[in-house]
């Protein structure tokens, strides 16, 4: 059971981070980004290629993160910005179109075989009181938690406060001089950074491919929904809970039911707490 919970926390950390990436973009740029997983995947694939070409681990990580960040900013500036005034629907479809195109592009350039991002600690395990803990799991869970803390801290900074102001009322924020366009680019960049981190964490522990992006983005959105698309804490906790549910169902019921049960759990949460399960505590959570 503990072993299952541990795996759940690991995959939950990926979901939580991706959910956070989605929420960050949602808050500051008001875009539901379905291409987030693919942005992270593109960056991670570049990283694995560099890694395979003999570039050492840490420089490859840095390049991966930079590419994820820049790609997201370019997407915001080139595609999203001028669509904003037409509402959510075109934006939503644009990110869907983007995710299709990016996914196929990855397949075209690098193929559809699963890949991994080999880290110096890959394959090493710890024995914690009979519990088999891999270093990859430790790294994922720790980085996930640190990432969540870092994003929370960012949203408490003056720039983060501006983003929250934009999230609460975009027009008023602009009236008092907040540069919403610049913030939107920064939020996209931050989202790309977090998404690349999430996919990279997944890749250093298991395999990623063009097929893994689809379920990752759904789980990410589910985590974001649990936080009401607003609360960072709710999203993080939601992602972890989702990971645990998914692993428990996979171990004790069936792996084919994982998806449906996780989604039904979300449906229940939404029914009981429309607006996310941390609604009402938003102010302290952000």
């Amino acid at each position: 059971m503990l072993q299952t919970v541990l795996s759940g926390l690991e995959s939950g950390s990926w979901f939580a981070l991706l959910g956070l990436a989605i929420v960050v973009v949602m808050k500051a740029a008001d875009v539901p980004n379905f291409a987030m997983a693919e942005i992270g995947l593109v960056a991670t694939y570049v990283g694995t290629v560099l890694n395979a070409a003999g570039i050492s681990f840490w420089p490859a990580v840095v390049v991966t993160l930079v590419i994820g960040t820049l790609l997201a900013i370019v997407i915001d500036l080139a595609l999203m910005r001028k669509l904003a005034k037409h509402g959510h629907f075109p934006l939503l479809l644009m990110t869907i179109g983007l995710s299709l195109a990016l996914n196929a592009l990855i397949g075209l350039i690098w193929g559809h075989e699963p890949r991994s991002f080999t880290a110096p600690w890959s394959g090493n395990h710890l024995d914690v009181g009979g519990l088999d803990v891999s270093w990859a799991q430790v790294v994922t869970i720790v980085v996930g938690a640190l990432g969540a803390i870092g994003i929370t801290a960012f949203f408490r900074s003056p720039m983060g406060a501006q983003m929250r102001a934009v999230a609460e009322n975009r027009e008023t924020a602009r009236l008092i001089g907040v540069n919403a366009g610049r913030l939107s680019a920064i939020a996209w960049g931050l989202g790309g950074l977090i998404a690349s981190t999430a996919v990279m964490l997944q890749a250093q522990s298991t395999l990623v491919s063009t097929h893994s992006a689809a379920s990752l983005i759904i789980y990410g959105f589910v985590a974001a929904t649990m936080g009401g698309f607003v609360s960072l804490f709710g999203t993080f906790a939601g992602g972890l809970a989702l990971g645990i549910i998914q692993q428990v169902v996979g171990t004790y019921i069936s792996t084919s039911a994982q998806f449906a049960v996780a989604l039904l759990a979300v449906f229940l949460v939404l029914m009981l707490r429309p607006g996310g399960f941390t609604k009402g505590m938003r102010l302290r959570d952000v």
Binding site: L175, I176, V286
Partner: peptide, 26 residues
């Protein structure tokens, strides 16, 4: 600068954060 209709105070921010927003334009 503008003091928007309905005051435009951001309810999810603290007083200090609201105050600081005033410097966003410079």
């Amino acid at each position: 600068c503008q003091l928007p209709e309905g005051r435009g105070i951001f309810q999810t921010l603290t007083v200090g954060e609201n105050l600081h927003l005033g410097t966003a334009s410079r």
